[in-house]
Simulated assay, not measured.
Amino acid sequence: MTSSAILLIGDDASALDALTRALMGRQVMVINEFACAPAMLEQAVPSLIILTDAPQQAAWAQAIRSGAGRCAAMPILACAATGHAAVPAGCDAILPFPASPASIDSHVAAWLPQDDMARARALAERFGAAQIMPMVDRLRGELETALASLDRGEDAGHAHRIAGVAGTLGFAAVSESWLILSEQGGKDAQKEARRTARIAIAEISRGTETNDAC
């Protein structure tokens, strides 16, 4: 599995098949028993993890998040019949399912890497990795802390600062969404800030090593 793969995990064979067909054209890997997931995740870091089985989604997501490797930072979507369903603990958002292939693919595409690290690496080449990369790593830590605050129902502190640092380092989507969150607030702004933050955290965690194990 390469770092561009989408990993589907679940016990429902029909759901896994429908998702695989909806994501035709993308690299998809399937695990139909969660017990097999740790071994798969030790081999490589996927771009996105999708969980199909509602009763186990929170437990599975939290097990992935508690891992020591970079897979713990990857975006995790939970399939649910409506986009208004509560997001299970450990997951980042709901993937409405069942839905049309176009709808599924569109939702998934929004959570795939934005290649922001390419811009950060360009800055590192220009100004020196010793100066830029620690700043990138600190941004990851600030984003992780901010997401934890959102999970607890608290305001994401220093949202304006995050927006500024992210913009300086080339994480344009993070900068824009967190600036909106700092100025306007609201659930929609929180959702978008979470999306861009999780993608950035995953990209930074993955770094320049796209094929290493977790």
Rank of each mutant, 00 (worst) to 15 (best):
A39W: 11
A39K: 14
A39I: 11
M40C: 13
M40Q: 15
M40P: 15
M40E: 15
M40N: 11
M40G: 04
M40A: 11
M40F: 15
M40K: 06
M40I: 11
L41W: 03
L41I: 11
L41G: 09
L41P: 10
E42M: 12
E42P: 05
E42Y: 00
E42D: 15
E42K: 07
E42L: 07
Q43S: 10
Q43G: 03
Q43M: 15
Q43F: 02
A44S: 13
A44I: 04
V45S: 07
V45P: 04
V45L: 14
V45Q: 10
P46Y: 00
P46R: 03
P46S: 05
P46N: 00
S47A: 14
S47L: 03
S47H: 12
S47E: 12
L48G: 06
L48V: 06
L48S: 15
L48R: 00
L48D: 11
L48T: 07
I49W: 06
I49K: 05
I49Y: 07
I50M: 06
I50R: 09
I50C: 01
I50L: 09
I50H: 02
L51H: 05
L51G: 01
L51E: 11
L51A: 03
L51F: 07
L51R: 02
T52K: 02
T52Y: 05
T52A: 04
D53Y: 01
D53Q: 08
D53N: 15
D53T: 12
A54K: 11
A54Q: 11
A54V: 15
A54M: 12
A54Y: 10
A54S: 14
P55V: 04
P55A: 00
P55W: 00
P55K: 01
P55R: 00
Q56P: 09
Q56W: 02
Q56L: 13
Q56K: 09
Q57D: 01
Q57S: 05
Q57N: 02
Q57T: 07
A58F: 08
A58S: 14
A58P: 07
A58W: 06
A58H: 00
A58E: 08
A59W: 14
A59C: 15
A59G: 09
W60G: 00
W60P: 06
W60F: 08
W60D: 10
A61Y: 04
A61M: 06
A61E: 08
A61S: 00
A61P: 03
A61V: 07
A61N: 09
A61D: 10
Q62T: 12
Q62G: 06
Q62I: 04
Q62L: 13
A63S: 14
A63D: 13
A63H: 11
A63P: 14
I64M: 04
I64L: 01
I64P: 01
I64F: 03
I64D: 03
I64K: 02
I64N: 01
I64A: 00
R65C: 09
R65W: 05
S66D: 15
S66A: 11
S66E: 14
S66I: 08
S66T: 10
G67R: 09
G67L: 06
G67P: 03
A68K: 13
A68D: 13
A68T: 13
A68N: 14
A68R: 13
G69F: 01
G69L: 06
G69K: 05
G69S: 05
G69E: 08
G69P: 09
G69W: 02
R70C: 05
R70H: 12
R70V: 07
R70M: 07
R70W: 06
C71G: 15
C71I: 13
C71H: 14
C71M: 13
C71F: 15
C71V: 14
C71D: 14
